[in-house]
C-alpha cells in the first residue's frame, strides 16, 4: 500500500510540475509578444554566453578527441580509418555538440537562473515586483528564455568547430592521420541538414533549460534551503528534459 501511495504521489507531483511548466510556458510565450526590454535581453545573453563558453570549449574539444580515438580503434579493424574525420564531424554536428552544450549550459546558466530567481522569491523581491504592478513572469522569464534560445545555438557552433578541431588534433598528432585527407573527409560528407538539425535542437534545448531554471526558481519555497533544492532540480530536470527531447527531435529531424 505504502509503495503504491509513494508512486502515486510521485506521479501526481510529476503531472503537477508538468502542468505548471506548460502554464508558465504559455505565459512566457504571450510575454514575448508584449514589449520587452532589449537591454535585459542583451545582459542575459552575455551572462548565459560568457558563463558557458569555456566549459563548452573544453567539453567539445575533448569529446571530439575521444570520438577520434574510439572510432579510429574500431574503424582500423576494417581499414576504414579514412572515415574517422567524417564520423567525428557528423556526430558532433548532429548529436554531441547540441546535447553536451545543452547539458553544460543547464549546469551553468539554468542553475544560476533558478538560484537567482529563487532567492528573489524568498526575499520577497518577486512580491515587490508584483506590488509595483509588474508581471514577474514577463519581467524575469522572457529575457532569460529568449537569451537562451539565441545563445545556445551560437555555443553549439563553437562546440562544432572545437569538436572537429579536437578530432583533428588527436587524429593527426597522435594517430598519424594525413591532415589533408582527414580534413577533406571531415567536410566532404556533411550536408546542410546536419548543421541545421543540430541548431534546431540547440534552440529547443535552450528554451527547455531556461524555462525549467526559471520555473524552479519561481516556485521556490522555504528559505535558503529551498533555493538549494530549486537549483538542484533545475539541473536534474533540465538535463532530463534535454535528453528526452533529444530523442524525439532526432526522430523528427532525422
Amino acid at each position: 500500500m505504502a509503495v503504491l501511495e509513494f508512486f502515486g504521489r510521485l506521479l501526481l507531483g510529476f503531472l503537477e510540475g508538468l502542468g505548471r511548466f506548460f502554464v508558465l510556458l504559455g505565459q512566457t510565450l504571450r510575454g514575448v509578444f508584449r514589449p520587452w526590454d532589449l537591454r535585459a535581453l542583451a545582459a542575459q545573453m552575455i551572462r548565459v554566453g560568457i558563463d558557458s563558453v569555456p566549459v563548452v570549449f573544453l567539453t567539445a574539444f575533448f569529446t571530439g578527441g575521444v570520438m577520434a580515438l574510439q572510432t579510429y580503434t574500431g574503424f582500423a579493424r576494417f581499414n576504414a580509418e579514412g572515415f574517422v574525420g567524417s564520423v567525428v564531424a557528423l556526430s558532433m554536428l548532429r548529436e554531441l555538440s547540441p546535447v553536451l552544450t545543452g547539458l553544460m549550459v543547464t549546469g551553468r546558466a539554468g542553475s544560476a537562473m533558478a538560484a537567482e530567481i529563487g532567492s528573489m522569491r524568498v526575499t520577497e523581491q518577486i512580491d515587490a515586483l508584483v506590488a509595483f504592478a509588474t508581471d514577474p513572469v514577463h519581467y524575469l522569464f522572457v529575457p532569460r528564455v529568449l537569451a537562451a534560445i539565441l545563445v545556445v545555438p551560437m555555443l553549439v557552433v563553437i562546440g562544432n568547430a572545437t569538436g572537429i578541431a579536437g578530432g583533428y588534433v588527436i587524429a593527426v598528432r597522435i594517430l598519424g592521420a594525413n591532415p589533408v585527407v582527414y580534413l577533406s573527409n571531415s567536410f566532404q560528407y556533411l550536408e546542410a541538414n546536419d548543421l541545421w538539425s543540430g541548431l534546431i535542437k540547440a534552440a529547443v534545448f535552450g528554451s527547455l533549460l531556461s524555462l525549467i531554471g526559471c520555473q524552479q526558481g519561481f516556485d521556490t519555497r522555504g528559505g535558503a534551503e529551498g533555493v538549494g533544492r530549486s537549483t538542484t532540480s533545475a539541473v536534474v530536470l533540465g538535463s532530463l528534459a534535454i535528453l528526452i527531447a533529444d530523442f524525439f527531435l532526432t526522430k523528427v529531424l532525422f
Binding site: 523581491q125 515587490a128 508584483v130 504592478a133 508581471d135
Partner: peptide, 24 residues
C-alpha cells in the same frame, strides 16, 4: 482581469518588512 488588477496595484506604494530591495 489581470490588466485591471495591475492598474489597481499601481495606486499603491509598499515598503516591505525586510526591504525586499532588488539585489541585482
Amino acid at each position: 482581469p489581470s490588466g485591471k488588477r495591475n492598474n489597481l496595484r499601481s495606486r499603491f506604494g509598499m515598503a516591505f518588512q525586510e526591504g525586499a530591495l532588488f539585489d541585482s
